[in-house]
Nucleic acid binder design. Structure first.
Length: 313
DNA sequence: AAATGCTGCAACCGCAATGCA
DNA sequence: TTGCATTGCGGTTGCAGCATT
């Protein structure tokens, strides 16, 4: 016999929530907070399990939820993060203020997945469908950058750790960014948290953009609601979206291809232009080649470990 | 107007991680 | 160290509403 859920065992209510139940839960949490979820239903007078209450609160009742359709910027960001993180919906949702993991997951499964397939892109690997059939899904994030020569130097677990650390680092408060970055703190204008990222001695977001090919340019993504470090809840999300190429230590190198990168929007990716745009981008790279791992510019030559970078792209 | 199919969202299920005694 | 309770997460299912026949 199949194992039954906690709601079944306790003969609790299941299915859709009534407005009355919502009210009870809302009122209870407004007064007392949720505390221990297992005790919430009893205290709130609900015939639900704590798990169900928690889910209802997180996915529906929470006051900071942003309802409605996803913006183009949010969509771009989801795809970008999915290419890096895979189906880590909670981590992806954490970068989208007001969105829940469930919402992001549903949006992915019902819309983005389909859209990518229509464009001939395998949503699991982010590679062209024909090519994707010959590769394993576990290479998802590297697969996106297939035209760059990426050497996996870590295990999948290490990759996961590094992505997590990166995201963690990006969550530092805005004041810390301004404190450590822009010439303060380390003298390079690099936020300290970047320097904490394993394998990266210095961090060039422009090069990352070029290398990974997935980061929307500052101009294309700075309009994301609540994502801008200049915004009210800034700093909690993706500062790189605001970091123009000249924010980096190798600023003038980036200048060579900054314009080309601005053309590399996710909409291009959808249009199959991701591959098409790459040569354009490379063409714009008349200057030093960042792929070689070292920025070759006169004055402030800086180590750029592009293979380290690939570990968490 | 009724039947059928499709879609998107809300909720459930089961497992893993975590906390605690 | 172990076992139990709780929480969090990702995959999956069920259903309401809409579109099509």
């Amino acid at each position: 016999m199949a194992k039954q859920s906690c709601c079944h065992k306790k003969r609790l209510r299941r299915g859709l929530w009534s407005p009355e139940e919502d009210d009870k839960l809302m009122n209870h949490i407004a007064k007392y907070g949720h505390g221990c979820w297992s005790s919430v239903p009893k205290l709130a007078g609900l015939e639900r399990c704590g798990k169900s209450c928690r889910l209802r609160w997180i996915n529906y009742l929470r006051p900071d939820l942003k309802r409605g359709t996803f913006s183009q910027e949010e969509e771009d960001l989801i795809i970008q993060l999915h290419s890096m993180l895979g189906n880590k919906w909670s981590q992806i949702a954490a970068q989208l203020p007001g969105r829940t993991d469930n919402e992001v997951k549903n949006f992915w499964n019902s819309y983005i997945k389909k859209k990518l397939r229509e464009r001939g892109i395998d949503p699991a690997t982010h590679k062209p469908l024909a090519e994707a059939t010959t590769t394993t899904p576990s290479t998802a994030c590297r697969a996106v950058f297939s035209d760059a020569e990426l050497i996996p130097a870590t295990t999948p677990l290490q990759e996961q750790d590094q992505v997590e650390q990166m995201l963690e680092g990006l969550k530092m408060p805005l004041q810390d960014w301004s404190l450590h970055g822009n010439g303060n703190g380390n003298g390079n204008g690099i936020p300290e948290c970047y320097l904490q990222v394993p394998t990266l001695q210095a961090f060039d977001m422009g090069a990352l953009q070029q290398h990974c090919g997935v980061f929307p340019s500052a101009s294309s993504s700075s309009t994301v609601t609540g994502l801008s470090p200049a915004g009210a809840d800034a700093g909690a999300n993706l500062p790189w979206l605001e970091l123009g190429p000249t924010d980096t230590v190798s600023g003038h190198v980036v200048d060579h291809y900054a314009g080309a990168l601005d053309e590399l929007r996710w909409s291009d990716y959808f249009d199959g232009g991701f591959q098409a745009a790459a040569p354009t981008c490379q063409g714009a790279l008349q200057g030093p080649c960042v792929y070689d791992g070292v920025k070759v510019d006169d004055d402030d030559a800086v180590q750029f470990d592009v293979h380290g970078l690939s570990n968490w792209c």
